[in-house]
């Protein structure tokens, strides 16, 4: 990645688009403190990504392509574990399961879940942490229409509470209505940064597909 610079205010949603290997996941993982920048830096709500990484992690939740769940544990057990690890051992797990529509499978091992259900579990794990920065990397994989609505609900909930959301996705049409700004990446460099209003759907399609 090179020369990626932006400021994301609270209550806003940033859409990150770009072809494969353009650096979308890298960017999100940098913000999540899963990666360290080799040059430059960043801060999340005032906390430096490298020096204050733990403070950043308190405020941030990252939902990546893998569910980060244990196959042999039930959905409920996984969520309870995530809650305990987030310092919220008393979180109402049943309520959260209900919110993401996993109550019917709550006591099934994750092993038997479909990818969409696993994605819902991952979203629940992030959501119960009440993050102020929500990072979603290709969140729509395997989700049905209700699942997609869930992502929108989560996004809206986060911004309403004063947080911000960064969504990296190929399916930018889903995010168009919520996004405040767009960052288009190609080969690790930005090709377009700006408010959504300035970009047309054609621009976004071109950026997402990498045709310039």
């Amino acid at each position: 990645m090179r020369d990626v610079t932006f400021v994301l205010p609270p209550h806003s949603v940033l859409l990150v688009v770009g072809p494969n290997a353009s650096g979308k996941t890298t960017l999100l993982r940098l913000l999540a403190t899963a990666l360290r920048p080799t040059d430059g830096g960043g801060s999340v709500f005032g906390h430096d990504l490298v020096r204050d990484a733990d403070a950043v992690r308190v405020l941030t939740a990252f939902v990546g392509t893998s569910a980060g769940a244990y196959d042999l544990l039930t959905v409920r057990e996984n969520l309870a574990f995530a809650a305990a690890m987030r310092g919220r051992p008393d979180a109402p797990v049943a309520t959260w399961l209900d919110r993401v529509g996993l109550t019917p499978v709550a006591d099934d091992p994750v092993r038997v879940l479909s990818s969409g259900m696993k994605r819902r579990l991952a979203l629940a794990q992030a959501w119960l942490a009440a993050p102020r920065l929500l990072l979603l990397d290709e969140p729509y994989g395997g989700l049905d229409r209700d699942g997609v609505a869930l992502v929108a609900e989560m996004t809206e909930d986060t911004t309403r509470r004063g947080g911000s959301v960064v969504i990296a996705t190929h399916e930018w049409e889903r995010v168009m209505s919520e996004a405040d700004a767009v960052l288009a990446l190609a080969a690790g460099q930005p090709v377009e940064v700006g408010p959504v209003a300035q970009l047309t759907a054609a621009d976004l399609a071109a950026a997402a597909g990498g045709r310039r």
Binding site: D54, A55, R57, S66, A67, G68, Y70, M85, R86, G87
Partner: peptide
């Protein structure tokens, strides 16, 4: 194996 290592390490706390 469970691809859970990164998730585990990203939880806040020591």
């Amino acid at each position: 194996d469970q691809q859970a290592l990164e998730t585990l390490l990203l939880y806040p706390g020591s």
